[in-house]
Structures are given as C-alpha cells and as structure tokens.
C-alpha cells in the first residue's frame, strides 16, 4: 500500500515569518550568554587527559641511568619504522649489557600509535602529553637521545601544560 504524504500547509502564523525569525534570533541570543567553547589556543592550552599519546620521552632511573637497554623491541613493533637505535656497552656498571649509543625518532614518520611503549620491557620509552610541535624544517623534527631525555625532564613531575613556565622550554623552534 502506498503511503500518502500530506505536505505541510503553512498557517497564518507561519506566513507572517516574523515570529520564526524572532525565535531564531532568540537561539542566537541564548548562545551569546552561554559558556564559550573556543579555546584561545596560543594563550590557553587544551590539557590532554592521562594517557594521551604525544611527543616521546626516554625515562631514567632516579640515579640518572637511562632505563633503555637497546633491545630494539620498540623498533620492531613500530609500524612505520621511525625508531633508529644503535646499541653499545653501557658507560656505567649496572649489570646490564646493552645501552643505546644513539636513539633517534623520526617524528614526521611516527604515527603516535603507542606500540613502542607497549612493547618496551623496561618502561623506558613513553609517550607524553605534548601535542604542538610543528617545525619549519625536516631536521627539527628528528629527535635524538638528548632531546628525548630533555622531554623527560620537562614532563616527569607534572602535566606539561599545567606548568606555568612551559612557553620558555618549548623545544620546537
């Protein structure tokens, strides 16, 4: 059976158009006094939740030794192949055989999936909450071991965006 669709017949009130216009303006006016949704980005930063996957860091033990043992599990787990590790003998006596002589991450190739921190047996590599690090050169987005340890120093105590002085130590130029 076919469905009979009756088209809407505008009433006299509808044909005036003015009440509908006023109703629309009332919606605008109501939003005028509501809480604003825009985050004034360079001045106010969005604070990402716990577990956000942003810029990487290399964790250290409290005595300053790097946790990484250069097992290259993260490089094996990485789907885009952006982690480049050169292993070597550690400079300190801690019973571990391997140590990353160089630990580079190509941030432009990284897709921030977090597989590296899941694969890491030593909880050495971790993704932090830093999300705004664009750069005008390709070399500026190739982060080495010193850079990763610097990110650890910036984010180890508290959320990076909670800190008041974080504009000063932004690594991206």
């Amino acid at each position: 059976m076919a469905t009979i669709v009756t088209s809407y017949e505008p009433t006299f009130w509808d044909k005036l158009y003015f009440p509908a216009l006023l109703r629309g303006l009332m919606v605008t006016l109501r939003h005028f006094f509501q809480k604003k949704v825009t985050i004034q980005y360079p001045d106010a930063k969005y604070i990402p939740p716990e577990g956000y996957r942003g810029l990487h860091r290399l964790n250290k033990y409290p005595d300053g030794r790097i946790r990484c043992v250069a097992c290259e599990m993260c490089a094996a787990a990485c789907p885009s192949g952006c982690i480049h590790i050169v292993p070597g003998a550690p400079p300190w006596e801690d019973g571990k055989e391997r140590y990353p002589v160089s630990f580079d991450i190509d941030l432009l190739r990284c897709i921030f999936c977090g597989f590296c921190e899941m694969a890491c047996p030593e909880q050495a590599i971790e993704l932090t909450e830093i999300y705004d690090f664009s750069n005008s050169s390709r070399e500026g987005l190739w982060i080495n071991k010193d850079g990763l340890l610097e990110v650890y120093e910036m984010t180890k105590d508290e959320n990076y965006y909670m800190k008041k002085s974080h504009e000063a130590d932004l690594t991206s130029g």
């Binding site: 985050i39 980005y41 360079p42 930063k45 969005y46 941030l107 432009l108 990284c110 897709i111 921030f112 999936c113 999300y131 705004d132 690090f133 664009s134 750069n135 005008s136 050169s137 390709r138 987005l141």
Partner: peptide, 27 residues
C-alpha cells in the same frame, strides 16, 4: 611532498591535533 614542492611548515601527528595546525599557522 617536499621532494616535489617547497614546504614551509611541517606538522607531525597522525593526525595532528587542531592546536598543532594552529601552531603551524602562527609559524
């Protein structure tokens, strides 16, 4: 794409946060 056309600002991320793109616009 910088093998073919000159690029001024790179934004890393997959995808980048909107703040990252706004930061690149400021650059």
């Amino acid at each position: 794409i910088d093998q073919f056309i000159p690029v001024d600002v790179y934004v890393p991320g997959c995808p980048p946060r909107p703040e990252g793109v706004v930061g690149s616009l400021l650059k």
